[in-house]
Simulated assay, not measured.
Amino acid sequence: MNKTIYDVAREAGVSMATVSRVLNGTAVVKDETKAKVQAAIEKLAYRPNAVARGLASKRTKTIGVILPDVSDLFHAEVLRGIEDIATMYQYHIILTNSDAREEREIDLIGTMWEKQVDGLIFISEQITKEIVKTFEQAQLPVVLCATEDPEGRIPSVSIDNESAAFDAAQFFLSKGISSIAFIGGPTSHRVTMERRSGYERALSAAGQPLQDTLILHAPDMKYEGGLDTVDRFLQAGHRAEAVVAASDELALSYLNAIRDRGGNAPDDVLLIGFDNTRLSKMVRPDLTTVAQPTYDLGAVSMRLLTKLLNDEPIDDYTVRLPHSIIERASTDRG
C-alpha cells in the first residue's frame, strides 16, 4: 500500500504537522527533527500526494503550458526557458499542443482548470475574444508568451515584432535594394501581420511603393506551406531581389524554391529569416535572421507568472525583450 504522511510521522516520532512543514518548507524545523523526517521518508519510500497537498494549500505546484506545436524548433526552445525557471521555483509543467486551433485552445484551458494548475503560460497565433473570455471564466493567472493581447488586458512577454520587421526591411533598403518581398503566415495570424506592418512601414518611409505581388501569405509559418506558396509565386514569373521572411522555415522554403530552379542565395536573392532557430545555422548558406531571445521569452514568462502567483511587485505587465539582426552568408555578396 502507498504510505501516507501519517506513516511518516509515526516512523519519525513527530506530528503530521511537522512532516508537512518539512515537506513544504513553510516553517523552520530543527535540523535533528528534519533529519528524522527525511530518514523516515526514505525508509518508507514515501511520495507526497500532489492532489492532497494542493487541497490543503490551495496550490498544486503545477503550471499549465499550452502551445501550438512542441515539435516546432522555436516553441521547443521557448519551452526550455519555461521549464528551467519552473524547476528553479519548484513547479512542475503540464504541457499540451493546441495545433493553433481556437476550439482546442479553449478546450485545453478548461482541462488545465480541471487539473487545478496554479497558473498558465499560453502561446498562440491569435488571442481572440473567446480565448480572453475563457481565461476570465477559469480565473487562472495567465501569462502570454511570444504574443500579446491586442487590448493589453493579459500579462505578456514578447518582442516588438513590428519594429523587428521594420529593421529587417531597412537592412535591405540601406543597401539600395528596392525589390523586397515579404512572406508570412495567414492574415489571421497576429504575429505575421505585425511583421508585415513593419515591412510596409519601412518601404513607405523610404518612399518605395508597396507591390501586392511581393507580399506572400502561406497557410502557416512552416516550410511545407511556404514552399508551395513560393513555387506559385515563381511560376507566375515574379521575382524579388531580397526577401523578409516571418520565420526561418519560410526563408528556407524560398531558398529551396530558388535552388530547384538552379538559383541560389545570395547570388540570386538575399534572404532574412526570423527567430534565429537552430535551422538558420544548419543550412548553407547559413541564414541571416532576426534574432529574438527565444529561451528568454520562456524564462521571463515563467518568472513573471511566479510573481503573479506569489503577489510579488511587478514593474511592467507587458514585457518587450530586445531583438537583433544576425548577419550571415544569405545576405553577403562580398
Rank of each mutant, 00 (worst) to 15 (best):
H189R: 03
N256Q: 10
P219V: 07
S179E: 14
R239C: 07
G207H: 04
N256C: 04
M193C: 11
A164L: 06
L255T: 01
V230H: 04
Q170V: 03
T277H: 00
L203K: 09
G262Q: 08
A168P: 03
E200Y: 06
L173I: 15
S178F: 02
F274V: 04
H189F: 11
Y199S: 09
F172Y: 02
D275Q: 04
G207A: 06
R195Q: 12
S174N: 15
V243C: 10
G263Y: 02
E224S: 12
A169M: 03
L250K: 02
R278I: 09
F233H: 12
F274E: 04
A168Y: 00
P219N: 12
L252V: 13
S197F: 06
R261M: 08
R261A: 07
Y199I: 07
D268L: 09
I180Y: 05
D220Q: 03
R201L: 12
L203E: 08
F182D: 11
A202G: 06
H217T: 14
I177F: 05
D228T: 08
L271G: 03
S188Q: 13
L255P: 01
A168R: 00
T229E: 09
F171G: 01
D260W: 03
E241S: 13
V230N: 05
A240K: 01
M221K: 09
G262M: 10
A168I: 02
L203P: 04
A164N: 06
P209V: 08
F274R: 02
M221E: 14
Q208L: 11
Q170F: 01
H217M: 14
I180C: 06
R196D: 11
L234I: 09
E249H: 01
L203G: 10
P266L: 05
D160V: 03
F172K: 00
T277S: 13
I215N: 12
P266D: 08
A164E: 06
R239I: 07
D268F: 05
A206E: 07
F166K: 12
A245Q: 05
E249C: 01
K222E: 15
V243Y: 00
I215A: 14
D267Q: 15
A245N: 05
Q208S: 11
R239M: 10
P209S: 13
D167M: 10
L279N: 05
D167A: 15
G225T: 02
T213S: 13
N256S: 09
A236E: 14
I215Y: 08
D231E: 13
A240G: 09
N264Q: 14
D267S: 14
E162D: 12
S174Y: 00
A236R: 12
A169H: 01
L270S: 01
D248C: 06
S197L: 13
N161E: 11
L216G: 13
I183L: 14
G176P: 00
F166Q: 11
L279Q: 11
G262T: 08
Q208D: 05
A240D: 08
L234R: 05
V243A: 03
F274H: 05
A245L: 03
Y223M: 09
T187A: 15
L210P: 11
R190P: 00
P186I: 07
L279Y: 01
Q208N: 11
N264S: 15
R190N: 07
Y254K: 01
S179T: 08
V269I: 14
D268Y: 04
I183P: 08
A206Y: 03
L279K: 00
Y254V: 15
L255D: 01
F182T: 10
E241C: 05
Q211G: 12
A236D: 15
A206K: 04
S188P: 05
L173Y: 02
S197E: 14
